[in-house]
Design a protein around this nucleic acid. Structure first.
Lengths: 172, 172
DNA sequence: CAAAATAATTGTATTATGCAACTTTCCCTT
DNA sequence: AAGGGAAAGTTGCATAATACAATTATTTTG
C-alpha cells in the first residue's frame, strides 16, 4: 500500500512473549529478529572488550585476539588457517598480521615446505601478551556477563555453540 | 610461570561438553567465552546483511536500519532518543543521521518545543526504503538463520531477548 | 540571574571492510 | 617436462565506522 501509515509496523502480540520496549519505544520488525539481538549484543560486548584492552597491542577490531591465541598455541600456523578460523578473507587477515608483526607480538617466516606460505610464531612479548589477554577475557566473562542469570549460563552457552557450529557448517 | 609452554592453554574437557574445533584447531580460552560466539556470529550476520542491502541507502554499519524504523514509526523523534536505543554516543548517532539526511531518506527539523533539539521525519523515499528493508530483514531471518533448528528457534530467541534486556538494564 | 545540565556538532586519530587485480609458487595432468 | 590452473599472500582503492574530547547553543534549576 502506498498510504503512509503513522502507526508503527508492529509485530502481533504473542501471549507468551511480551513485546520489547526501549525507553518507551518499540523497534518495529527488529523486535523479532535474531540479527537485532546479535548485533546489539556484539556492539556492547566489543566496546567493553576494547576498553579493557585499550592499552594493549591487540585492542580494537575482531581478529587480533584470536590470531594471538592461535599463533601462541600453534607455532608455525599459516595465515590462511587463521583466516579460516576468523571467517575473514585473506587481505583482512593479512593486515591483522601486519599490525601484530609491527607491534612485535608475532613473527613471520616463510614456510620451509611451501615457499608461497608463511609460518607464524609468537614472540616472547606476544606470549606475555597472550597471558594478559587470557586474564582479560576471563575477567570480562565474569564481570561483564554477570547480567546473564547463573541458571541461564549453561543453556545460553550450549545454544550459542550449537548455533555457531551450524553457521560455520553453512559457510564451509 | 615463565616457561613458554607449547601446549595449548586449553580448557579442561567437560564430559557433557565436547570441545570446539575449527579446521582441526582449537581456540584456546575463547572456546568457553560468550564474547567469542557473539562476536563471531555478529561478523557473519552483519556481512550477510550488508550484502543483501548493498544497493540501498542504509547499507553498512549498525545504526542505520534501526534509525530508519524509529523515524518511520515515530515521526518527530529526537536524535538523543535514537542514540539511546542504539546504545551509542551522540556523535556517532549524529553522523548516522547526517548520512541518512544526505541520502534523502529522513528530514531534520528543529523541535518546536526545544530549540536545542531536533525532530526527525521520514521522507516518502525513506518510507519506501523502510518497507524494502523490512522485506530484507524478514528474508534474512528466514534464509540466513535456517541453520537454527526449528526446535531451537523459540528458545534461542527467548534467551537472546532476556540477555539483551538484562544487558540494557545494566547500562542504563 | 548565574550555574549546571542537556542537545547536538566538530575535530582528530585509528581501524575496519570488502572487493578486485596482481605476483609468486606449487601441483597435476598430458 | 611443460603448461594450465589452483593456492598463498599482497596491494590498491573506496567507504565507513568508532571512540573520545572539546565546543556551541539552549534550557532548566537553584
Amino acid at each position: 500500500m502506498t498510504t503512509k501509515s503513522t502507526a508503527p509496523n508492529f509485530i502481533e502480540d504473542d501471549f507468551d512473549d511480551p513485546h520489547i520496549e526501549i525507553g518507551g519505544l518499540r523497534i518495529d520488525i527488529l523486535e523479532g529478529a535474531f540479527s537485532w539481538y546479535i548485533r546489539s549484543l556484539d556492539a556492547v560486548v566489543s566496546r567493553d572488550l576494547d576498553r579493557r584492552m585499550a592499552d594493549l597491542e591487540v585492542a580494537k577490531g575482531k581478529g587480533k585476539i584470536t590470531t594471538l591465541f592461535l599463533v601462541d598455541d600453534y607455532p608455525g600456523i599459516r595465515p590462511s588457517q587463521v583466516a579460516d578460523v576468523l571467517m575473514r578473507d585473506r587481505p583482512a587477515t593479512g593486515r591483522i598480521i601486519d599490525r601484530m608483526v609491527a607491534a612485535g607480538v608475532i613473527r613471520r617466516e616463510t614456510s620451509s615446505e611451501d615457499q608461497r606460505a608463511q609460518a607464524l610464531y609468537i614472540t616472547d612479548k606476544g606470549h606475555e601478551l597472550a597471558e594478559k589477554v587470557r586474564g582479560i577475557i576471563r575477567a570480562q566473562e565474569a564481570e561483564f556477563f554477570d547480567f546473564i542469570a547463573p541458571e541461564d549460563r549453561d543453556q545460553f552457552m550450549q545454544m550459542l555453540k550449537r548455533v555457531y557450529l551450524n553457521m560455520r557448517k553453512k559457510w564451509d
